[in-house]
Design a protein around this nucleic acid. Structure first.
Lengths: 131, 131
DNA sequence: TTTTCATATGCTAATATGGGCAAATGAGAA
DNA sequence: TTCTCATTTGCCCATATTAGCATATGAAAA
């Protein structure tokens, strides 16, 4: 049962569950810094969460230049397919702000460069408009 | 997200996951002492696990005389239905010994009385036959 | 009532977990 | 090479979780 126990454990933390749910609902690839800004968390913690999710086979990574793109790994068995569906059933309303922020954050991409997060005045300006 | 986080948390422990998976796969009602013996755990810990599962709405209880019957609570939303299916997808082989023990344990029921577990020589005799 | 039985709960010590900071990678740019 | 940037990792501290024991309930039997 260890695999299943570990999968539930990695999803049992608010922050990690939000990271995974966001990636699953948005369905594309995102940089660590974009996810961090969308969830209004520190970059190093988001990096830790993504690594924990990767360790359990929930997400995959792809290095692009200096950045790393993360996305949900395709479900390879029945358990994981149902788990994805369960998490997709979580109401969007619980993450609407973060999904909105992520879309905005991605729209700032310039030749695959990240506009750095919390301290960047441009980003703060944009983020405060989103309820 | 708190509800979902809490549900994953209660399933993130080996023992609690086994209790819930066993109840879900077997699909009937069982006494605390029966579940404890089937999982070869202490009665007080199994009682704690069942209460934690109940607190998150995963199982329900029914008092019968001195005993308490526990069973899986029907899924009431999409999330829970998919979660049940995910857990039902966990291979039976991982719990075959415990499912076997539970069936044996239930077959000993006498007018709703429990034959007490770990220290009862009759039960030990029966249990050691199951691989 | 008193006793017995099945289950539940309170307490404590050992262990695990999470967050934040600082420093380390690793890859491209200069 | 050296510098910069995005991400990762190691470390420490505060907090949370867990198991086991002892005790408490609550319901029926004596």
């Amino acid at each position: 049962m260890e695999r299943y126990e570990r999968i539930f454990k990695v999803l049992s933390d608010d922050k990690r569950l939000k990271v995974f749910t966001l990636l699953l609902k948005m369905g594309k690839e995102y940089y660590v810094c974009e996810i961090a800004d969308a969830l209004e968390e520190s970059h190093y913690n988001i990096s830790k969460y993504l690594n924990e999710l990767k360790r359990e086979g929930l997400v995959k990574e792809k290095r692009i230049g200096r950045g790393v793109l993360y996305s949900v790994k395709e479900a390879e068995d029945e358990f994981m397919k149902y788990l994805h569906n369960a998490i997709l059933s979580i109401p969007d309303t619980l993450l609407s702000r973060n999904m909105e922020l992520l879309k905005l954050r991605v729209s700032l991409r310039q030749e695959n460069k990240c506009v750095i997060g919390v301290n960047d005045p441009r980003w703060l300006e944009i983020a405060k408009e989103v309820k």
